[in-house]
Design a protein around this nucleic acid. Structure first.
Lengths: 218, 218
DNA sequence: CCGCATCCCATGTGATACTG
DNA sequence: CAGTATCACATGGGATGCGG
């Protein structure tokens, strides 16, 4: 029932037995953003087969990582307190993997949940606290297909999909460009000059503010 | 060739594609202790099939996580600089999983490498710096089969297998007891009183020092 | 020996279809 | 909507082989 074990008495080994199966940590990642329904998870994890999702949800419940939210009219999955303590793991993985990303490909989904966690792993709360509250609108993806609204207010960060015409300080578009900005491969000046980031609204200083707020250094 | 992808443009997803396959992070964990030969890895990861080990080593090389050590007479695997940056991930996983351990079972191996990383994830350098250098001898495992020599000197930590009769400040034995000590479920006093930790040499204050040096709180 | 490669079978995964 | 059921296929596990 519990995942095959590694035959070793060790913390890392135990962690891999509990959340090391394929898809498991991605489910945890999405639930770190907030409780989710079965169908929402299936949509955010586009290629997960339904039987695998069902199996993982059961295993993660048995492992004490997630639970069905009590007192909820619909079926909602949420992290247990112990599961929420996986946040440092997910953030560390995100920070590491983000720097290995290349240009987004056409078929790759960019979900609000995944970008939320990526941006959280790059978020420098101490820097953001010194800056005025800002809302950024960003379009990601090869075709610019995914639209996100990123709101930063002090050390608070919120990401929602589908910008819509809110009162947005500026909006940017670009696939790899935004990643290069965050990893520091390019600064705001260069990003605009080389065209990898398109500034659709607002001025360049706001792009610099974005790069200051979200930064992943080696 | 590269692992099946998740169809998503995200740092966590990318990380899972690079090091998310079964056994991969355990190989990384052991290499965080130091370069290793193929046979050493196979011995430390007792149940890994040889074809899987060979496959993972290739994949991790292709991913830029490990490499064969150059200028070495024998074949040695070591982490690349980028691979070494997985240390926060492994430590976070170890800290999380350690608290989900139960009593060690008879068949479970306790390797010096895995305990080294577990102890590193629990190691409080700032605390240790204030304490005198100490060498601990510990026997883990259901049958007390694994003997480790743990040396702490300032913020330096070293773990070796097979204690031997060095000049050891004290020695302890116990399986889950040592974990309970580290997680704070028991303090040194209780651990000895209830018999979950057996103090074979040295005095109780040294056990308290151990618990101060290695601590994983919720 | 050490560092793998091969074989074979059990199990896990993925795609699709289906049901309460 | 929230899962099961089914089946083809990929991967993992264990034993064994084999060249340098």
């Amino acid at each position: 029932m519990a995942s095959r074990d590694y035959g070793q008495y060790s913390g890392i080994t135990r962690a891999m037995e509990l959340v090391g199966e394929r898809w498991a940590l991605l489910i945890v990642r999405d639930l770190l953003v907030g409780p989710r329904r079965y169908g929402e998870l299936a949509a955010e994890l586009p290629r997960i087969p339904s039987n695998i999702l069902a199996a993982r949800l059961k295993e993660l419940q048995a492992a004490g990582v997630i639970r069905r939210a009590p007192r909820s009219r619909v079926i909602l999955y949420e992290l247990t307190p112990y599961g929420r303590e996986l946040e440092p793991v997910v953030l560390a993985l995100g920070a590491w993997g983000f720097r290995a990303l290349d240009d987004p490909r056409e078929e790759q989904l960019i979900s609000a949940e995944s970008m939320t966690m990526d941006l959280r792993s790059a978020f420098r709360a101490s820097v953001a606290r010194e800056l005025p509250a800002t809302a950024y609108e960003a379009r990601f993806g090869a075709s610019g297909g995914t639209e996100l609204l990123i709101r930063v207010d002090g050390s608070e960060l919120d990401v929602a999909s589908g910008g819509g015409p809110g009162d947005v300080a500026f909006s940017i578009a670009g696939g790899a460009g935004i990643r290069q900005l965050i990893t520091g491969e390019l600064d705001a000046e260069q990003a605009i000059a080389t065209g990898v980031v398109e500034l659709r609204h607002g001025d360049k200083s706001l792009l610099g503010r974005f790069a200051d707020t979200f930064h992943l250094a080696a």
